[in-house]
Amino acid sequence: MSPANDGPSPLYLVLGDEELLVDRAVTSVLDVARKVDPTADLSRVKVSDITPAELAELLSPSLFAEGRVVALLGAQEIGKELAEAVAGYVKQPSEGIFLVVVHTGGGRAKHAKELPAQLKKAGARVAECKKLTKPQEREAFVRDEAKRAGGKIDPRAISALTETVGSDLRELASATAQLVADTGGHITEDAVRRYHRGKAEVTGFAVAEKAVTGDRAGALEALRWASHLGVPHVLIADALADAVRTIAKVSHIRGVDPFSVAGELGMPPWKVKKALAQARGWDSGSLATAMQVVADVNADVKGAAASPDYALEHAVLRLIAARQHP
């Protein structure tokens, strides 16, 4: 992850939009610069706030050749003239100056999109800082964080931590570092539970899944968490409707391979499989009632009911009641 491992280079490219990782990459360049010159300082400038002339001033060697790190932030929005100035500079970098270009990898204009390729061609060290989207990636991140802080963490503790802290990397990193300090190096699930309680993220789908499987207590708990965390009511109502519809769609399938009907139903196979498991306990009568319930609650959360919170709870209870006594 760190671009600075292989010794100093006058040019760095930080690609990606995961804020924490970008920050770390920039700081690591500063560390490298300080090894060369302990007085080196870091100036962060946004491409929108700077003119080519100002950039040239920042990038020209000073009289006493102090080390300097210039971080050019938000380079995906770079203007044409500034992009030309950067392209001109990288051909002949000044001594003692480290230029770090931070770019999300996207960009609208042609010159902004092409900038990363140009820098790579000019020999820039590249640090990839893409957003971590998969749960496994986040778990690996937490494990690395624990190692970085000089400790280790149990797999069960990792999942407990992601459940209670959420998916924001900055929060995960600081929570992990704190836990390493507090527990003396080895983080167990108990330790996580001692310091962190509750749930950081509950989706409407989690509520809906519990509601259609008849888990009254679980569904209501998830719903309370969701409303506590500010999940929009409309999203929960839509998730309920989607869950009921999915079950209704697969309810008439008996003993057929889920993979063969997936295309016909317009759903991915895993969804068919899951819905088939959830469809136990439902029949056509109870499903019709359930569809009416989710249609009602859809109107309720859009202003028909005085309290959308109550409307959702009532709908969840009615769904569970419909499943038991159609």
């Binding site: 409707a241 519809r245 209704a248 019709a288 569809m291 009416q292 989710v294 249609a295 859809n298």
Partner: peptide, 9 residues
Amino acid sequence: IAIEAMVAT
């Protein structure tokens, strides 16, 4: 959602 509920009835 509204139409599906209607058709169910």
